[in-house]
């Protein structure tokens, strides 16, 4: 038997919003440690890795490891039926072919349950090598979303160049060219508004805007975003989910022909 409950549906709703445009379907791997999801987008250019720890749930029970193939479009439709402050419970029997979502209003006067068929998805799991990144940038998530949105008007690629002075985002195309430079913040009163850069050596990489903009759908989950870069390896865009886990997006760089 698998059962996982969150006292507020809002986080799970945001998690679905963060992945449903990039992935059509994915397997939720459940164990007593929590829920893991790893899937590539259809073009195999990016990879989503989601971790929701069992201790972040208000109730979590997983008697036997369980892999649930979910159609994320359908799951998102079901979660749209929950209010942010509803309690949400996911339930599935061990060798189930369906999963049930139960939503309970705060005053317990309204209880809804939705049963969704599970899918048999072939599990292609990728090994992600431990990497000591040359540059790690932490910045406000809203700022990163704004930069990706603004620059995608000027070109279909963004060059991210990180030095000890700061991080520069550039784009160019038919309209013209655009550069946004962020300096490392010296002192801010609110930690979450800081721009911090840990640099071992400078890095400059080119990425497709459409994937970066898809990743920023996770912005509502976290005040900050972390960008990890090294030459000729995928970018990692990480959003921490407070008290529950994280979502990491990996994006393969574009390279000169």
């Amino acid at each position: 038997m698998f059962e996982a409950r969150l006292n507020a549906a809002t986080t799970l709703k945001k998690v679905l919003d963060a992945i449903k445009d990039l992935l059509n379907e994915a397997t939720f791997d459940c164990s007593d440690a929590g829920i893991q999801l790893q899937a590539m987008d259809n073009s195999h250019v990016s990879l989503v890795s989601l971790t929701l720890r069992s201790d972040g749930f208000d109730k979590f029970r997983c008697d036997r490891n369980l892999s649930m193939g979910m159609n994320l479009g359908s799951m998102s439709k079901i979660l749209k039926c929950a209010n942010n402050e509803d309690t949400v419970t996911m339930k599935a029997q061990d060798n189930a072919d369906t999963v049930t979502f139960m939503f309970e209003s705060q005053n317990h006067e309204k209880v809804s349950d939705y049963e969704m068929k599970l899918m048999n998805l072939d599990q292609e799991h990728l090994g992600i090598p431990e990497t000591d990144y040359s540059c790690v940038v932490r910045m406000p998530a809203m700022e990163f979303a704004r930069i990706c949105r603004d620059l995608s008007q000027f070109g279909e690629s963004v060059i991210i160049c990180c030095t000890k002075e700061g991080v520069k985002f550039s784009a160019s195309g038919d309209v013209g060219s655009a550069n946004i430079k962020l300096a490392q913040t010296s002192s801010v009163d609110k930690e979450e508004e800081a721009v911090t850069i840990e640099m071992q050596e400078p890095v400059s990489l080119t990425f497709a805007c459409r994937y970066l903009n898809a990743f920023t759908k996770a912005t509502p989950l976290s005040n900050q975003v972390q960008l990890s870069m090294s030459a000729d390896v995928p970018l990692v865009v990480e959003y921490r989910i407070p008290d529950l886990g994280h979502i990491r997006y990996y994006l393969a760089p574009k390279i000169e022909e």
Binding site: V45, L126, A208, K254, I255, E257
Partner: peptide
């Protein structure tokens, strides 16, 4: 510029 795929960096386990 040509777009690489993630599978050219991460191997299937």
């Amino acid at each position: 510029m040509s777009q690489r795929t993630i599978t050219s960096f991460f191997t299937k386990t």
